[in-house]
Design a protein around this nucleic acid. Structure first.
Lengths: 156, 156
DNA sequence: ATATTATTTGCATAAAATTACATTAATGGC
DNA sequence: GCCATTAATGTAATTTTATGCAAATAATAT
């Protein structure tokens, strides 16, 4: 069924276009576009899309799609740690070996752990090297792609 | 009344520290810290602080204070400039005297100008002091309130 | 001080959002 | 096709959040 898919696309567009402040609001817009669902479904859609509710800077709130530069704070700081320490990365089998500036392996490994990427099973840190164990059967290209999306600042 | 102020400070701290996912949650933390209010008050506090409700990237949501990077870009960078230079502020008549770290008065004054706050008529910068001329009849408390809302990071 | 005005809060309730449960639609074997 | 399994949705109940209004409290003026 592609009804849901179409609806999600419509929702994203509506949210980007208007300042939607309640699901009831959104419902109205959807109806105008020919989508007929209940508010309960919207609640589920919103969660599915990870839509945020953010202050308009005055007295109201509106829905907003998560964007890359709005990454949640904790994640942002982990990413910063990684960028700070990162030098290079190499691969062997289902492992990635990340080279860091001396003494940074630990903070980098900690940060990687805390990103809770499910492509990664675990990490081990030396002084300037972090060993990253990848999920079995994960293509290294796939991993690189994910990493690049997550931290585009890295020179992979 | 400083009860509210203290509570708001506590709320900010709690929200920064834990992943609070409902006002009931927050209420519990507040009680533990000796604040006794009702959920209705929290609802108002949240709005006052412009707290956002953000997806945790999985299936949940939690509260998050508006951060610098969620402000519109130009304003963001001006605000950063102010925060970078700011030391303290004092008042005399319809003037505010902002003390900055040496050499920063200029960039701070420039930033203040560019925020186009209509509470401010004009600024003058020395080396480590910015003179801010306030709109006539503007209460200093009102000004502080505005400033605090605009740049909560400042210790006014 | 006392009066006046504005702010803050609780209570009760309304509005908004989520969820348990049941039902229906889609999907993948066979 | 038919059956089994999973996903999607509606309905109704529940939970969470917001708000109108009155009482309490603080701030300001006289």
């Amino acid at each position: 069924m592609k009804e849901k898919e179409a609806r999600l696309r419509a929702i994203k567009k509506i949210i980007k276009t208007y300042k939607i402040k309640s699901q009831r609001d959104l419902l109205k817009h959807l109806r105008e576009n020919g989508f007929n669902v209940t508010q309960a479904t919207l609640s589920r859609d919103m969660r599915f899309l990870r839509v945020n509710k953010i202050s308009d800077g005055e007295n109201g709130y509106y829905y907003s799609l998560p964007s890359l530069d709005m990454r949640i704070d904790s994640e942002k700081s982990f990413i910063k740690d990684i960028i700070r320490g990162f030098i290079s990365i190499d691969y062997s089998g289902n492992m990635a070996i990340m080279h860091t500036i001396p003494g940074h392996a630990d903070s980098v490994a900690f940060a990687i752990d805390n990103l809770s990427l499910d492509e990664i099973i675990g990490t081990m840190a030396g002084d300037d090297t972090v060993l990253i164990i990848l999920k079995e059967n994960l293509e290294k290209e796939e991993f690189k792609k994910m990493l690049k999306e997550k931290i585009p600042e890295l020179e992979l």
